[in-house]
Write a protein that binds this DNA or RNA. Structure first.
Lengths: 222, 222
DNA sequence: CTATTCCTTACGGAAACCCGTAAGCGAAAT
DNA sequence: ATTTCGCTTACGGGTTTCCGTAAGGAATAG
């Protein structure tokens, strides 16, 4: 079993249960942090001391509070960790259940397992830890219904997300076009952006931009 | 201390900690349900058997799964419970931290305490349970910054919510007007609705309808 | 080299929005 | 009874979205 595991989870009500699972699995060293920044520091230090972690279990969303934070989400933490210790195994334990988000965790951030917080997630988490230890790939807790084969949301790319983000911030077409020119994002003609928004509206069966953004919010795309 | 407490919480990772708190407080009877419907049934039965619950601790959002559910949220559970056993004390334990939502729980549903899931929520929860037992009123966990005095969100009423809901569903002004006429909601002229939306845009500092709905989603108003 | 295709961009008219102004109307005040 | 006030509704013009058509340009195929 893993020898040294770090848990990044801000909610104390949840971390208690996660730590308990690791104790049940006889993990000798279990560390726990409530902030992403703290997590990165611990991982860096452990690597420098030649006592690196075997496994990171992290949540995705962390609450903001008085403390200033540079890493504000599990995504950001993993991205930073990948630069420091790319071989570290990573399990995400989060409430998120949107296939688009989860797929990108596997594809873009190279996580080893995803466990969705739910009614039986403790067992699921335990299984995921064991499977990860046995070098299985792309482990998904069983209550998630989608498979990696369905292409349903895969074609929504970062370009679309950028448009949706700006729209949701109150930008009008022309402003989005200007912003894209500034950021050298292409295509950036108002007409092209308009067409892309139209595709998104068809895809999500949205009547208009307002509806589209409401749906995008529901899907966790923005 | 309370003699009989019901916990309604779907996430097993959290309910473990909540039950543990109650055990620490020497509560003799602790029941736990993962579905709202189940919770209502238990409360009804206990009341009929003349062994009613003293306290309900419930989450707000519950995950949907294969099971058909009539009560799908903590709000709905509390509303139903209030009809069966109005004197039951109620603590809400949820991640929600929007003042509008929380105020309406106290004002409309008559809950006794609200504890926000956070980095020290176990202690907060313990305190809230003790305070509730001592008949204190309107208990709020300390990480919530707003007070009941600030009027900031109080004036957003159900009329505004209705508008935002329909907007987020892709309705255009004229359709909203028709819908309001159907439902006998007044005022229902397109102009009045337009003016109200305008107020909301000023209030939330939104540039346009798209922006407004994005903000409303963030605030959990729709 | 030309033709085809795909993609980006431009244009234009209809619909919906945005926002100010003013008319209509009932309730309360004088 | 008249005035005032507050609220709802109507109207109009400027802006943005919506949606179809088409021009320009690069890449690929023949």
């Amino acid at each position: 079993m893993f020898k040294k595991v770090l848990v990044a989870e801000d909610l104390d009500s949840i971390s208690i249960a996660v730590v308990q699972v690791l104790e049940d699995l006889k993990v000798p060293v279990i560390d726990h942090v409530k902030y992403c920044d703290e997590g990165l520091l611990k991982i860096k230090k452990a690597a420098l001391d030649n006592e690196p972690y075997d496994l990171l279990i992290t949540d995705l969303s962390f609450k903001l509070d008085h403390r200033k934070a540079t890493l504000t989400s599990g995504d950001e933490l993993i991205e930073a960790v990948n630069k420091v210790q790319p071989n570290l195994k990573k399990i995400v334990f989060s409430i998120e259940d949107k296939s688009y988000r989860i797929k990108s965790l596997f594809n873009d951030l190279g996580i080893n397992a995803y466990v969705s917080k739910g009614r039986n997630s403790i067992t699921e988490l335990k299984n995921a830890i064991e499977s990860t230890f046995n070098n299985e790939e792309k482990i998904l807790s069983s209550d998630l219904s989608f498979s990696f084969n369905d292409k349903s949301l895969i074609e929504i790319e970062s370009y679309d997300i950028s448009i949706l983000k700006l729209l949701s911030q109150g930008y009008i077409l022309e402003s989005i076009s200007k912003e894209f020119k500034n950021l050298s994002i292409t295509p950036n003609g108002t007409s092209s952006i308009e067409k892309r928004i139209n595709k998104l509206k068809i895809y999500f069966k949205a009547n208009n931009n307002v509806h589209l953004i409401a749906i995008a919010k529901d899907f966790g795309l923005v």
